[in-house]
Design a protein around this nucleic acid. Structure first.
Lengths: 142, 142
DNA sequence: TTATTAAAGGTCAAATAAGGTCAAAGAAGG
DNA sequence: CCTTCTTTGACCTTATTTGACCTTTAATAA
């Protein structure tokens, strides 16, 4: 079974991330497409299908001159502890269930990603748990 | 991660401001352009896109001989450590200014009260500061 | 003192350089 | 076949770079 281009691009990106010191890389979409002799939107496709938030990745990008796509692999956390990606999944779920509207979803995600950023992991997890509890209370669920 | 000229000029200016005693500097547009080997209007572009009032900067300029551009970084007033009451006050202010609606205000307050609750004070302060910064970013204010 | 000139900075639009979206066509697997 | 995943390309939005032309002000010449 011959790997598809998408598979190879996925592998390539994952190797880059693994090699990085901070689980974060920046790529040029066009350059990567060039490397794999495919159209740029193929790269977009790979990012859309294999580097989702649910997979534990966070993406940012900028257009125009010197544009880029930055991919961050969120810290994998163990057991029942609530890391940022799990919390974001939870938020997404609330959004799907229409318990949060679009703006609320974006706002809370922004806070989660940015607020506890520089805290030691254990504290971040506790903050995340607090946020989850608060949200549950506020929305009167569970 | 190859920075654009615009990015480098931005950095340069920010370093100058940081080094200044009064968060205020004066530059010569043409000279700066010379330094970065670009056209003068490139500097104008950087000032227009990255040193706006929303970003917390104030600009004055004068044309003609001995012309200049003066850039002042407005002092962020909530300089001290951010306890929960201060943060709540801040949220209330956002609410008064209609930047947050009633539900959003209540939700965020709920989160603030619960999120860092059982953390040591120093961490709770850091969380609060993170939340304030994230909110400012999200609402695009200073 | 007044008129002229040179030395700034400002504006705006075109050219260029990215990344994003979407839908259609093609391929793989059941 | 039918569905799902992949590949491709046309078109869109955003960011940067550049240059021609405009306006303001200080210095200087008359």
């Amino acid at each position: 079974m011959n790997k598809s281009i998408a598979d190879r691009i996925e592998q390539y990106i994952k190797v880059l991330i693994a090699r990085s010191t901070d689980r974060q890389i920046e790529i040029q979409r066009a350059e990567l497409a060039e490397t794999f002799s495919c159209v740029p939107s193929q790269v977009t496709y790979v990012l859309r299908t294999r580097f989702t938030e649910k997979d534990g990745y966070y993406k940012e990008s900028r257009r125009g001159g010197r544009g880029y796509v930055r991919i961050t692999e969120l810290q994998q956390e163990c057991g029942g502890l609530l890391g940022s990606n799990k919390l974001i999944q939870f938020i997404n779920q609330l959004s799907t269930e229409k318990l949060l509207n679009e703006r609320e979803t974006a706002m809370i995600k922004h806070i989660i990603i940015n607020a506890g950023n520089d805290l030691p992991l254990e504290y971040r997890i506790r903050v995340n748990e607090g946020i989850a509890v608060a949200l549950r209370q506020f929305l009167e669920i569970n």
